[in-house]
Nucleic acid binder design. Sequence first.
DNA 1: GCCAACGTTGGC
DNA 2: GCCAACGTTGGC
Length: 163
Amino acid sequence: MAQYWLFKSEPTTFSIDDLAKSPRQTTCWEGVRNYQARNFLKSMKVGDLGFFYHSNADPPAIVGIIQVVKAAYPDSFAFDSTSRYFDPRSAPDSPRWFLVDVRLVKKFPQALPLEQLRAIKGLEKMELLRKGSRLSIQPVRPEEWQRVLRLVPDGNSSQSTPR
DNA sequence: GCCAACGTTGGC
DNA sequence: GCCAACGTTGGC
């Protein structure tokens, strides 16, 4: 079964519009250098869906949906001493960091600001909304996924469970 | 720009 | 293995 995730990115570094302009609207998700986030990356399967979140943005917001199109593989940026993501402790024969490839599924017609999400009943336990949460890759519970989608015009939140 | 929260590092 | 120091994240 497909799992749900949330991917953080600072839009000044890589925004959802950057993804929209990428070839095949696909990119490798660079720069994860946190072990917990890495472990989540490694557990992703092709077909999993994720929210694209703009952090350090005005306002911080969920801005769309992406899909995992390639499962975790070694992050070669970590081997490149000229890369900002270089990590000398990672070697090709024992990679420490990984990437997945993701493709844009949908950019929301309107961003869903963090402030709005905080007011939604049923999202209280969402990792994104936890005080002090800094994880750049987060699991999202199916019920949280649906609740967020309900905020999107044409969100198809009930496509599998009509009510 | 501030600063609380968090993760990592490294001396001991 | 502890924990202080440090660097980073990210909302405000």
